[in-house]
């Protein structure tokens, strides 16, 4: 990445940490964002997840892949759901897991992120799973940990949530098999959504035919096209002929920031109903990262309807996180599936 047409006489080191996620052998070392990763790596994550998906059905839901490894779930932002799936994933891999919730306060910002990391690192931690309200936190931590310590981004601000994106890719692949023919529409608060950004990267890397976003202009980034998507302001045209619909959660505080007038109008224009679903392909797959506001983002009949794979997403989340942890920390990084 260059800092754009610099003048000739003065040379600047182009900031480059696109490769920060890979080790010297080109293998995954941190998982911060799908951006700049290869199709092969994303495919490998899904393949390994596939081999793990049977573990949950065993009588003993454990494999010894990460025995002796220590994983810290470091959450600067509350999230029971995501933390739980990471915890379960690590435990099923036989790793030791510690959960640390740093209360959201002024003191948890800035220097104390670094202090917290340094303190924990001194306890021989192998991996941090980090969630923080500031975009860029996972990159910041990855740059500041010892070389043998890995970081998985469990959500940083509005930037990235790569494991959520990968579990959605995994879910899509299980239903649709091939990405190259897919038209995917993402609906809702794109502006604030780390899930949407990571999904868009992953879909484009995996070769989806078209990625669309559908939202009112107040919930779109200023240069939404730069994400690599087609932009729509209405469901009627945006949903036309799509194969997969991904709904995003609408935070209620958006009404207070003058971004939206009311839940009613949002549901009327952007809520997914059975009627609106008729614009899509008949075998459309409906997804939502949860938790769903029924009657705001989508009608209950759609959320719980035959096209919805919302519960599969949750189940797949564990296998995908097991896969990412294994690819990063596993001894020979060859996965032996269930034993």
């Amino acid at each position: 990445m260059s800092s754009s047409d610099q003048t000739a006489s003065t040379s600047f080191n182009a900031p480059d940490c696109s490769q920060i996620q890979l080790n010297e052998h080109g293998r995954l070392h941190h998982f911060l964002t799908p951006q700049n990763l290869s199709k092969d790596i994303l495919t490998e994550i899904m393949d390994v997840a596939e081999s793990f998906s049977s573990v949950a059905n065993q009588a003993v839901k454990k494999v010894p892949v990460l025995r002796g490894k220590t994983i810290v779930n470091l959450f600067f932002e509350n999230s029971t759901r995501t933390r739980t799936t990471f915890e379960l994933a690590a435990k099923r891999l036989s790793a030791d897991v510690i959960n640390i919730n740093v209360a959201t306060s002024a003191a948890s910002k800035g220097e104390s992120v670094l202090d917290t990391i340094r303190t924990l690192e001194a306890m021989q931690v192998d991996m941090f799973v980090v969630r923080h309200a500031d975009s860029g936190t996972a990159h910041f931590i990855a740059r500041n940990v010892a070389p043998h310590v890995s970081v998985i981004n469990a959500g940083d601000g509005s930037h990235a949530h790569p494991t959520q994106a990968m579990l959605d890719m995994f879910t899509i692949r299980r239903v649709k098999k091939d990405f190259s023919k897919l038209k995917v529409a993402i609906i809702g608060d794109i502006l604030h959504s780390r899930v949407a950004r990571s999904e868009i990267h992953a879909l484009n890397i995996l070769g989806a035919k078209e990625v669309r976003v559908i939202a009112p202009n107040t919930l779109l980034p200023i240069d939404a096209k730069a994400l690599g998507v087609t932009v729509f302001n209405d469901l009627e045209s945006g949903l036309d002929d799509v194969d997969v619909v991904i709904m995003l959660r609408l935070q209620r505080e958006r009404m207070h920031g003058a971004l939206l007038p009311s839940e009613n109008e949002y549901f009327d224009r952007f809520g997914l109903t059975e009627e609106k679903l008729a614009y899509t392909k008949s075998d459309v797959t409906v997804m939502h990262p949860g938790p769903i506001n029924r009657g705001v983002e989508m009608a209950a009949s759609v959320a719980d309807g035959p096209n919805s794979v919302v519960l599969q997403q949750v189940t797949n989340g564990i296998a995908v996180r097991m896969a990412v942890m294994t690819l990063i920390l596993g001894q020979n990084r060859q996965v032996v599936g269930a034993e």
Binding site: Q6, T7, A8, S9, T10, K109, G110, E111, V113, L114, H132, D134, S135, G136, T137, F140, N144, D156, G157
Partner: peptide, 26 residues
């Protein structure tokens, strides 16, 4: 030393002002 949005804005820039400006001349 913090995640980007939590850092303080600002560049220490007196000592690069002349060479950067001479870059525009070049």
């Amino acid at each position: 030393q913090a995640p980007f949005p939590s850092t303080q804005a600002g560049i220490s820039s007196l000592e690069t002002a002349l060479p950067l400006t001479l870059g525009l001349v070049a």
